[in-house]
Design a protein around this nucleic acid. Structure first.
Length: 497
RNA sequence: GCCGCGUUCGUCUAACGGUUAGGACACUAGGUUUUCAUCCUAGCAAUAGGGGUUCGAUUCCCCUACGUGGUACCA
């Protein structure tokens, strides 16, 4: 494959992109880039009722955060624009009419009530949801049942109508899915899908075929929920005369709820306590705001349903591009596991250079009201880096380096404090006032004084830590003391003497 | 109901006819850290069920069960 590999990600601007959508975009992007092809973003806004203000911008921002940058898009433009279907409206009707002329589609004038009546009339125990198909179309109000004159008259008087595909009888419609292999469907089970709506806008089925054709799309990655309508698309590519250049389809498995049943939905995030959006959307916190690193998020998503065949699980975007192979995508849906996402993030935080992490950490500190210089923060970050899972953890792990602990866990040293302790720390501070201030000498003298006063090291070490940081946590206590400096250590300890 | 797709440890997955069915997350135990986390070591744990095909099936075929998706003038 070469540079005529072109993939598109074609979301509807009906809300925030969720995990599944991002993964579809990611796989498309990886495949395109692996083959040195193009990745295009197309906005499928043909349903004006579901249009949501700001959704398109959100989608773009999300992709950018992930590093999935389109080569062509509504914003950026390209040779095959426009990239919003609402702006390509002029294209669709002519193709639909071409299908009618060639006998592959027909005008239908049925009202909403007509359709409801048909569904009610044909409904039975064995057929609970009757379709507009070969068994019913001849009893409906369309250009197949009406005379040519009547049809023309209705059309000329602007009677509301749609254009439906005329699904053939007794055909086995097949195509080869990149992930699932040969897929066959019996045409007798398909319905006459609406291609062009009464408002003159195309449905997904028509628009996707025409635009994939016009934009020279070579491969399509989309969710498994499209598998049942794929035969309609196959038919359309054929009826429009483009059968030989139809794209190759890859229907991706779904991302499922971690607990119960079904597709992951945005409600699950609130319910189970994890984000389902990359960036915050509509009051729902995103992965970014939760404190995930974009590359960890992308790695986690890529590993959900794909692997490179080795035992390696860590991949940068560049490595994903290099190793991506669509034949290694799984067929079965995957239950989402937030624990694993957390693990990925912790791994990325640990592996990064502290300096690389610094800007993001600084942002968290500022949010918590701790504005410090990079020079002050960097050495502390190096000490606590491996203790951070999510970026906001940095505040919890670092605040006591810069300010006296407020919540002191006194319970942890309850009953372990005596006058002898006070004497010990007083002597310690007295001695430390005149030594060379580094962690080695701090530790040595700490131990010497403890021995001289017949105190067990363990008995004085823990209270010392608690006075310094506020609890039983944190890096080596002498590392902390060294950073704090004599005056600060003295201040924190003296409070308890 | 009908149609499509799927089914390996609790979860994500490897093994594309021959392995003691491997790894990761989670969990458990031990070690390190005179704290906690990290880290190290070990442990736990799976081929949905039934028929075939084959010298041999996780792997190929069929049936059943279960899961999931579709069945809109939504995508």
């Amino acid at each position: 494959m070469s540079d005529n590999v072109r993939l598109r990600f074609a979301p509807s601007p009906t809300g925030g992109l969720h995990l599944g959508g991002v993964r579809t975009a990611l796989f498309s992007y990886l495949f395109a880039k692996h083959h040195h092809g193009a990745f295009v973003l197309r906005i499928e806004d043909t349903d004006r009722n579901r249009f949501v203000e700001g959704a398109e911008e959100y989608i773009t921002n999300s992709l950018v955060w992930c590093g999935i940058v389109p080569d062509e898009s509504p914003e950026k433009g390209g040779d095959y624009g426009p990239y919003r279907q609402s702006e390509r409206k002029a294209n669709y009707r002519q193709y639909a009419e071409q299908l009618v002329e060639n006998g592959y589609a027909y005008y239908a004038f049925d009202t909403k009530e007509d359709l409801e009546k048909m569904r009610a009339d044909f409904k039975s125990d064995t057929n609970p949801s009757p379709q507009y198909d070969k068994t019913t179309r001849m009893s409906m109000n369309n250009s197949l049942t009406l005379s040519a004159e009547e049809t023309t008259k209705l059309l000329d008087t602007n009677t509301p109508h749609v254009i439906r595909i005329k699904v053939p009888e007794n055909e086995s419609i097949r195509f080869n899915d990149m992930i699932r292999g040969d897929i066959a469907n019996d045409s007798n089970l398909l319905d006459d899908k609406v291609l062009l709506k009464a408002d003159n806008m195309p449905t997904y089925h028509l628009a996707v075929v025409i635009d994939d054709y016009l934009m020279k799309i070579s491969h399509v990655f989309r969710g498994e929920e499209w598998l049942p309508s794929a035969p309609i698309h196959v038919l359309l590519w054929k009826y429009l005369g483009w059968e030989d250049i139809a794209p190759q389809w890859a229907h991706l498995p779904l991302i499922l709820k971690p607990d119960g049943k079904g597709k992951l939905s945005k409600r699950d995030g609130e319910r189970l306590g994890f984000p389902v959006f990359p960036l915050s959307w509509d009051g729902h916190e995103g992965y970014k705001e939760r404190g995930f690193l974009a590359d960890a998020f992308v790695n986690m998503l890529a590993a959900l349903g794909w692997n490179d065949g080795t035992e390696n699980e860590m991949f940068s975007l560049a490595e994903l591009i290099e190793k991506f192979d669509s034949t290694r995508i799984n067929k079965a849906g995957a239950k989402f596991n937030y624990e694993k996402a957390l693990w990925y993030n912790a791994e990325y935080v640990k592996q990064k250079e502290a300096a690389e992490l610094l800007p993001a950490v600084q942002l968290e500190l500022k949010k918590a009201g701790l504005a410090k210089s990079d020079e002050e923060v960097l050495p502390v970050l190096k000490m606590v880096q491996e203790r951070i899972t999510l970026l906001p953890d940095a505040v919890k792990e670092m605040h006591y380096f810069f300010q006296q602990p407020t919540d002191v866990d006194e319970q942890s040293i309850q009953g372990k404090w005596s006058d002898a302790h006070a004497t010990f720390y007083a002597a310690l501070l007295d001695h430390w006032g005149s030594i060379d201030w580094n962690k080695e000498s701090l530790e040595t003298t700490f131990k010497e004084i403890a021995k001289a006063q017949e105190m067990k090291i363990g008995a004085v070490m823990l209270p010392f830590r608690v006075m310094l940081v506020g609890g039983k946590f944190g890096p080596g206590v002498f590392d902390i003391a060294q950073f704090l400096g004599f005056e600060e250590v003295k201040a924190r300890v003296s409070k308890y003497l």
